[in-house]
Amino acid sequence: MYPALSIIFFTSASGLGYGLAAVLGLGLLDPQALATKLAHVLALCLIGGGLLSSTLHLHNPQRAWRALSQWRSSWLSREGVMAIATFVPLTINAAATVFYGKHLLLVGLLGTLGAAVTVYCTAMIYASLKSVQAWHTRLTPICYLLFAAAGGSLAGALVAASGNAHSVVLMVMALVFLVPAWAAKWQWRKNLREAVPLSTPESATGLGGLGKVRLFESPHFNDNYLTREMGFRVARKHADKLFVIAIIAGGVVPAFLVLVALAAGHAIWAPIALGLALLFHALGVLTERWLFFAEARHAVMNYYSR
């Protein structure tokens, strides 16, 4: 699948934003600290920026409001509805924190729930497509949720450390989410590489009874919308290297830096280590998200022998 930058940025940024918003909703951070107030604003910016970015790949974005109408059947529509609904508790809690230095627990927990459901809806847009076998698995939403939770915990720990609080809970949460996130991703990619293809050129043409089917002449000499959108091939050459880079940057390095921060206590090293951990994690997730699209094979490519 073609890895559109707007969608990669959207899923990564909104994932981190919802993760941070979910952690903020738990009320583990001091609402009077400047860092916490900034974190509320940052979470809303990440979510809003991600949503705006997602409209960039629309060809008629002026009608985007219509996408809220089909929540009964479409995960994309459900995501839009949930994103807007979740803005309500997130914005109320952010306003209470920023202007009054107070955390509203019930509203915060509603925001946490909404954030989790929205990330789940985002993942289900992909997981619901049977035509892309690698995506069509329960592991897809599990990965999206765990990555959002890991990123949110890292960001939350950084916010706490920046406010000169030593939040062991958030750092442990970050470790607890990082490990299963990458374990699930590892299994997800193993499935992608080893699963027996659901559809083949033989089943796509129904000519398997005659023998092995391969493309002799494509419909047109040049690429078309389908091959550009669904026949992306650049990734496969460096995919293994990129996956290792993603695991090291997004998992190993942040986990090590969290341990450093745990050991550092209230020293200045703690926020620095956590800041670096978040930066590396974000880079790792961006790489992972790029591979999520670039490596997935679409069933229609059975007609193009790709």
Partner: peptide
């Protein structure tokens, strides 16, 4: 669109 396939026994 019309694709052409070769089927190898």
């Amino acid at each position: 669109r019309v694709h052409s396939f070769e089927v190898v026994p």
